[in-house]
C-alpha cells in the first residue's frame, strides 16, 4: 500500500503537481546545430532525476542550461522557458551569480581548486562574503560531514586538495557545493572517472542528500540510473524521447527507442 502511495505521488509529479523545475518548449542551438529540440520536463523537489542517453544526445547540454553554464559558450542560443520556483531563469535579466548559488554543479572530472581542503570548501562562503573564522570552520565541518568525507580528511584540512584520491576529490567538490547551501544539485556524470567503491559512496551520498536537495544526474551507466533515481529521462539526438518514473522506464518503456537503448541494442 505504501509503495502504491509513493508511486501515486510520483505519477502526480509527472503531471506537474509540485515541480521544482519546469522546462517548457526548450530549444538550444550551437550555431546551426540543434542540440535540444523541444524539451519539456517537470522536475520534482527532493527527488533524484536521472538523464540517460548515448553520447552527444544533449543531456549534458540540458543540465548546463539549468544553471546557465552554457552562457560561457559564445555560439549557443537558447529558446524556451526554464522555470525554477516560478522564475524563468533564461530571462536575460536573471542574476546568473545568484542562480548558480542556488543551482550548483558537480562535474564529470573532479575539479578541486589547487588549494587546501579547507580553502576549497570555504571558497563558496568566502566569495559570498563570509569572513568570520568560527563560522567558516563550522560550515567546512558540516559540509564535509554531509558529503561523508569528514572522517577521511579531518586531520588534513590544511593539506592540498589535489593530494586526495579521485573519489575523495569528487566528494570534496560536493562538499564545496553544500557549503553554499544550494537548492538544486546538478551532477554531470559524477562517477564516470571513479572506481566502483568511490562510485558506491557517491551513490549512497545522493540517497542522503535528496532529503534536502533536488538532484539531477546525467549518467552513462544505466544501472546507476536505475539504482539511484526516482525519475528518468531518456534523450536521443536532442529530443527527450521519454520521461517517466524510473521503474516504468526500465520495466515498461512506452517508446521503442527507449527499450532498444536500455536493453543495450544500441548506444
Amino acid at each position: 500500500m505504501a509503495d502504491f502511495l509513493l508511486y501515486f505521488k510520483k505519477i502526480g509529479g509527472l503531471i506537474g503537481m509540485s515541480s521544482k523545475i519546469k522546462v517548457n518548449n526548450l530549444y538550444l542551438y550551437y550555431g546551426d546545430f540543434c542540440a535540444l529540440n523541444n524539451v519539456n520536463m517537470d522536475i520534482q523537489p527532493n527527488q533524484v532525476t536521472a538523464l540517460i542517453g548515448p553520447s552527444g544526445c544533449g543531456k549534458s547540454t540540458f543540465l548546463r542550461t539549468l544553471n546557465r553554464m552554457n552562457d560561457l559558450i559564445d555560439i549557443c542560443k537558447i529558446v524556451g522557458e526554464v522555470i525554477i520556483d516560478g522564475e524563468n531563469i533564461l530571462d536575460p535579466e536573471m542574476d546568473v551569480v545568484q542562480l548558480r548559488k542556488r543551482v550548483c554543479m558537480v562535474f564529470q572530472r573532479p575539479n578541486p581548486f589547487p588549494m587546501t581542503v579547507y580553502d576549497n570548501v570555504a571558497y563558496g562562503p568566502r566569495i559570498h562574503g563570509m569572513k568570520e573564522k568560527s563560522k567558516l570552520d563550522e560550515i567546512v565541518e558540516k559540509s564535509l560531514k554531509a558529503s561523508a568525507l569528514w572522517g577521511e580528511v579531518k586531520d588534513r584540512l590544511k593539506k592540498p586538495a589535489l593530494g586526495l584520491s579521485g573519489g575523495q576529490q569528487q566528494r570534496l567538490c560536493i562538499a564545496r557545493l553544500l557549503a553554499i547551501e544550494p537548492e538544486v544539485l546538478l551532477m554531470d556524470e559524477p562517477t564516470s572517472a571513479l572506481d566502483p567503491i568511490s562510485t558506491l559512496k557517491i551513490e549512497e551520498l545522493m540517497e542522503e542528500l535528496k532529503q534536502k536537495y533536488t538532484i539531477i544526474i546525467v549518467t552513462h551507466n544505466m544501472q546507476q540510473a536505475a539504482r539511484v533515481s526516482d525519475y528518468t529521462g531518456f534523450f536521443l539526438t536532442g529530443d527527450m524521447v521519454e520521461f517517466d518514473v524510473t521503474e516504468n522506464i526500465f520495466t515498461k518503456p512506452c517508446d521503442k527507442r527507449t527499450e532498444d537503448y536500455i536493453t543495450g541494442r544500441f548506444g
Partner: peptide, 27 residues
C-alpha cells in the same frame, strides 16, 4: 589554467572577477 577550475568557481556562483583573482591568477 584548466577550464575546469573556472567552471568550478563559476558554478559556485562566483563572479568572473572573483574567479580570476582567486583561482586563475594564483594558478
Amino acid at each position: 589554467v584548466p577550464v575546469s577550475y573556472r567552471e568550478g568557481s563559476l558554478a559556485l556562483g562566483a563572479t568572473k572577477w572573483q574567479t580570476i583573482c582567486r583561482v586563475v591568477l594564483p594558478s
